[in-house]
Nucleic acid binder design. Sequence first.
DNA 1: CGATACATTGAGGTTTATCAATTTGTGTGG
DNA 2: CCACACAAATTGATAAACCTCAATGTATCG
Lengths: 250, 250
Amino acid sequence: MSQFKTPVAVPLAPALPRKKQGVSPCAACEVRHLAVCSALETDDLEELDSILTHKGLSAGDTLFDEGEPATHVYNLTTGCLKLYKLLPDGRRQVTGFLFAGDFVGLANSEDYIYSAEAVSDVNLCSFEKHKIDKLMNSHLSLEKRLLGMARFELAEAQEQILLLGRKTAKERIASFILMLSERAQRRGEPDNPVEFPMNRNDIGDYLGLTTETVSRTITRLRKSGAISLDSDRSIVINERDNLVDIAEGF
Amino acid sequence: MSQFKTPVAVPLAPALPRKKQGVSPCAACEVRHLAVCSALETDDLEELDSILTHKGLSAGDTLFDEGEPATHVYNLTTGCLKLYKLLPDGRRQVTGFLFAGDFVGLANSEDYIYSAEAVSDVNLCSFEKHKIDKLMNSHLSLEKRLLGMARFELAEAQEQILLLGRKTAKERIASFILMLSERAQRRGEPDNPVEFPMNRNDIGDYLGLTTETVSRTITRLRKSGAISLDSDRSIVINERDNLVDIAEGF
DNA sequence: CGATACATTGAGGTTTATCAATTTGTGTGG
DNA sequence: CCACACAAATTGATAAACCTCAATGTATCG
């Protein structure tokens, strides 16, 4: 699956020579304000840095598979990752797309409950779970931050349940475009046009649709004027209010 | 909607005269081992008891509506509650059924993100949110417990996403019957026959199906021999392994 | 420039929804 | 205890949304 466009993705915050410096690489991290790591004071970041390793994945690479022992948690610093579950006959449900600043592994207990694969080239901070657990005991703000993130993800999961249980294909696609737009904005990136790192098949597996239905539905939204396509992977929102109405089922 | 079979549900742990006794009513709570409250030592239960009030609802009563300020969290001690979201045209998605020991309000932040309605007569322990927050600061075990519960609920939400996105009606019904069975067992109740407090319409709104499809699918499972019906609200699992295979898509 | 993967479009089929009628179950009042 | 009224569940006929299978178009990369 791996495409190896670039042999290995370049870490955002490369592992510096571990001299005893006063400054942790984490202090310079561009996505810290988005990530778990924002829970820690600058003073504590050296400690955080001492327990993490950087990891790069090329598009298509697998980070871990459902059912493996969940030894690590990760923080995504660049790129896009997809999480998915499989049924025995190969039906696939993408349970989430993760972007810079997102945390991987919140829901996992003993074993990973989903597989994780790089959609684009990706950089991660990797933490051994037992080390994070230990850090949590001494830094309560970290635990609070994780609880906050879990609550947020729970709310998002329930939106997705509403989407999958009761929305039409058109409503699902509109919701998806808006979600990607809003998440890009939260990361401080432009919210329009919306950039799609994933292909139509992944979108379908996320929205409970087939590739063909995704394609046809995007075409219909395009012909209605609500959106335009810069390219397959870049959608311009022409009528945001209209798209919001469609997404919410008005 | 309210049926008032019994005028008001009777609290499991009735509010005793608040004399300075050594023993908290919480200490005698039958569902404590299932609930958030299990995070606290017996010594701390008096403190917990001092910030809670008991609340009873009749079947059909509303606990709160989506969009209201989220002032309280609750712990269900008896009965069954459903959580749901609505689309503007009335389409409804039940996001969860809650039973004795379950916690209500984990995902909510400022406002409730779903409505909550009693499926059967229900008893609850009600906590003002700011008081629970304060208690969390002094009792870290409570925070850990909430994080653990949030992680568990996240894992369950992802199972539900797989179900709604990729499973057939037959697979959904089989999964649902097994889920109710397993949850009854966790509460220390018989896991067979499976008791259904909710009607076919609620089941449909939970599984992303219509009443009619729920009914037809149950009929087909019955005719195949996998299950039998004691009554509408009580299903006997005849072939559990078979049902598991169906639920998982084999 | 050709190979390959991805996206789009079309024709037809399947599952599930919708609409309507009937049956079953439950509680109430005589 | 029975008859009635009402709600819920089931069953049937038909329709719609989406899926499947197949072909064609398009972009990308060596």
